[in-house]
Computed example of a mutant assay.
Amino acid sequence: MTTTERRVALVTGASRGIGRAISERLAAEGYALALGYGTNAEAAADVVAAVEASGADAIPVAADVSDPLAVAALFEAADRAFGGVDVVVHAAARMTLSPLADFDLEDLDRMLRINVLGTCIVNQQAARRVRPGGAIVNLSSSVIGRVLPGYTGYAASKAAVEAMTFILAHELRGRDVTVNAIAPGPTATEMFLDGKSPEQIEFFAKAAPLERLGTPEDIAKAVAFLAGPDGHWINGQTLRANGGVN
């Protein structure tokens, strides 16, 4: 397959958790991959090795998603390596939990810079560069629809992601590029499990009628659908991939 024939995906937050699972799933479907990561070069190298073992091409690129110059460089690296970008999956995120009355505002600012400003920056570059027939997929969260004390700041940041997703889909009218979001429910990732007791994990696992936590692979399947031709008529939507959590 030539560079012009194969589809190219750029994934942020690709070094672990849901971002890694998405990268491996897209690689299995034949995408070449530009893998954006924050600081863990060793983890990113592991993902590249896994992707290449499946027969796909991949490059790792360090990029702070809250830095416009770093994100532009990530997209430029994809252009140089593969000739363009067809799919952008923005999975990079930070989760800091605290009741709002006690929230350290510096911690809140750091989370909002990654989750809100980072989404603006990545989507801005994607809107300028994704080729016709392509897709932009953002990661939201099903916490938006639940009452979970301590999640105020995080839920607010993901509500912003959904608002941007819907409006950007309309701003790209006539481009043949879809913009959607995936809103995972409780998913067994390092970020989700960190600091939770066994009782808390059991509570979240029982919240869905399927009575288990989601897996990163569950989310990756949904992303692959929205990124591919079978999902191209879905646009401006948020898919709640959460096992039925209300």
Score class of each variant (00 low, 15 high):
residue 1 M to C: 06
residue 3 T to H: 11
residue 5 E to R: 13
residue 5 E to Q: 14
residue 5 E to Y: 01
residue 7 R to T: 03
residue 13 G to Y: 10
residue 14 A to I: 05
residue 17 G to Q: 08
residue 18 I to L: 10
residue 18 I to Q: 11
residue 20 R to W: 03
residue 22 I to F: 03
residue 24 E to H: 04
residue 25 R to D: 02
residue 26 L to Q: 06
residue 28 A to Q: 14
residue 30 G to D: 11
residue 31 Y to K: 06
residue 42 E to W: 02
residue 45 A to E: 15
residue 47 V to G: 07
residue 49 A to D: 12
residue 52 E to C: 06
residue 53 A to I: 03
residue 58 A to C: 11
residue 60 P to S: 06
residue 64 D to V: 07
residue 64 D to G: 03
residue 67 D to N: 14
residue 67 D to A: 06
residue 71 V to H: 06
residue 75 F to P: 10
residue 78 A to C: 11
residue 84 G to Y: 10
residue 86 D to R: 03
residue 90 H to P: 01
residue 96 T to S: 09
residue 96 T to L: 12
residue 98 S to F: 03
residue 99 P to K: 03
residue 100 L to V: 14
residue 102 D to Q: 14
residue 105 L to P: 00
residue 107 D to G: 05
residue 108 L to C: 00
residue 112 L to V: 04
residue 114 I to A: 12
residue 114 I to V: 15
residue 115 N to I: 03
residue 115 N to W: 01
residue 119 T to D: 06
residue 120 C to A: 15
residue 121 I to V: 15
residue 122 V to C: 09
residue 122 V to Y: 04
residue 125 Q to R: 13
residue 132 P to T: 06
residue 139 L to D: 06
residue 142 S to C: 01
residue 143 V to Y: 02
residue 152 T to N: 02
residue 154 Y to V: 07
residue 155 A to W: 02
residue 158 K to L: 01
residue 159 A to C: 07
residue 160 A to V: 02
residue 162 E to K: 00
residue 166 F to A: 15
residue 166 F to R: 14
residue 168 L to S: 05
residue 171 E to A: 05
residue 173 R to L: 13
residue 175 R to I: 11
residue 181 A to W: 01
residue 191 M to V: 12
residue 192 F to E: 12
residue 193 L to F: 04
residue 195 G to R: 05
residue 196 K to W: 01
residue 198 P to K: 01
residue 200 Q to P: 03
residue 200 Q to R: 11
residue 201 I to D: 13
residue 203 F to H: 12
residue 209 P to I: 10
residue 210 L to D: 07
residue 218 D to S: 10
residue 220 A to E: 12
residue 223 V to Y: 08
residue 223 V to S: 02
residue 223 V to N: 03
residue 223 V to P: 12
residue 225 F to A: 00
residue 226 L to N: 09
residue 227 A to D: 09
residue 228 G to V: 07
residue 230 D to Y: 00
residue 231 G to N: 08
residue 231 G to Q: 02
residue 234 I to G: 11
residue 235 N to E: 04
residue 235 N to I: 03
residue 235 N to Q: 08
residue 241 A to F: 01
